[in-house]
Design a protein around this nucleic acid. Structure first.
Lengths: 217, 217
DNA sequence: ACTGATTGCTACACGACTGTAGGTTCGCCG
DNA sequence: CGGCGAACCTACAGTCGTGTAGCAATCAGT
């Protein structure tokens, strides 16, 4: 008889101290996440991907939720760090338009450089659980605050028409996110050059023109 | 003795012909969806919500996927109908800005009027399964096509600067969607007046000014 | 090499959902 | 009023994920 259940006797996984194991598991979780979407991220699947049994996962984390939080912490550190670097320094001297264009380009670069970090953040990955959504939402708000501040300062300096900075920050934010999604989803159709170029075209159609700012200082 | 297992003997649900039952089930599914999010939409949950047993659901639909498709068909008919009404008629005479503002206001009205229809579409409901996402994405593209056409015509008529209409259509689209989300999520903070007002402010800062268009005809 | 603490594995008890077979009730229609 | 088909229900078998108890393998230090 063909060995119906050859009792495959799982080969012992390499032993790791807890901290190493945690990193290992987060890597596995991220792979599953990017490959299969949020709904497939289970303790079971992570254990499989990490080539370990479930009890090992439970030994490292108290369950799926803490694990996801840890994964988000790590991802957030990476993504948020990149994103914040795009924010204008207090001492930023140029025009708001310049900042927007620079930041847009920088974001696109960042996204293309670490797609696996950004894909979950941009919501491309299917089915984010509530805890993930909440986390991302709060991060979004943080960033949006920065954007609003930058716009406030920039627009005041320029002395442009008074706009609803809060709403505008929303629009800038979702535009940035959408640009990220576009380059990830359809890189051949929408590349950095095209998107930044389009944005530049739009901004140049806006009052006041960049040349107005030079003589205000 | 307290009847430990009183054999609750489910009371017979009202008998319905298949078509009626289908509508009934879709209603139940939508309630579950809006209340608990996509991840909780299961045959089981729908049956519970509809106060029927699972076999009844299976008698009406071949499984969860067909049922969801049907639900999307119905929702799409409603949402898409509203959305398309906002598209400019071929004979639209006014300025692009006017159309954008009118459409934005109309969309906000529609969203507030039928929140349960729009919430899933706008992705507020947590965790859309792949089939739902695909469906919504294709609808989105359809609408975006309309927007692009409208912008093309409107901008040519106005003779404004040549912008990347395709990218601009993306931005108009996501702006509209985001406005919808804002009024649904934080109605006290963002109401129709504020959003449309902000948009108007932004457009008025754009060249050429509306008054330029009158003398071009 | 020996030993014990550390890390991993097997195995079990649950719980939720799926899908279906087969019996039961309802209500229309002769 | 009796039958008969449509519509509903119960019950079962199967799958997949959770969480935990207890055994087994590994490796570090003597």
């Amino acid at each position: 008889m063909k060995d119906v259940t050859p009792a495959p006797k799982r080969r012992y996984a390499k032993r790791l101290p807890v901290e190493k194991r945690r990193e290992h598991l987060l890597d596995a979780a991220l792979r599953v996440l990017v490959r299969d979407g949020y709904e497939k991220v289970t303790i079971e699947a992570i254990a499989r991907e990490a080539d370990v049994t479930r009890p090992v996962v439970y030994a490292a984390y108290d369950g799926l939720e803490p694990l996801l939080h840890a994964l988000l912490d790590r991802t957030q550190r990476r993504a948020l760090a990149s994103a914040l670097q795009l924010m204008p320094a207090r001492t930023f001297e140029g025009d708001v338009d310049d900042w927007v264009l620079t930041a847009a380009g920088g974001l696109i670069d960042a996204v293309q450089h670490e797609p696996d970090v950004w894909r979950p953040v941009l919501g491309l990955t299917q089915n984010a659980p509530v805890i993930v959504r909440d986390r991302i939402d709060s991060t979004r708000e943080l960033i949006r605050g920065y954007i609003a501040d930058a716009l406030q300062v920039g627009l005041e300096r320029r002395g442009g028409p008074d706009v609803d900075v809060d709403v505008l920050a929303h629009l800038v934010m979702i535009t940035a996110e959408h640009f990220g999604r576009l380059v990830l989803d359809q890189p051949e159709r929408y590349d950095k050059e095209r998107l930044v170029g389009a944005l530049e075209g739009l901004l140049s159609a806006t009052l006041p023109q960049p040349e107005n700012r030079a003589d205000s200082a």
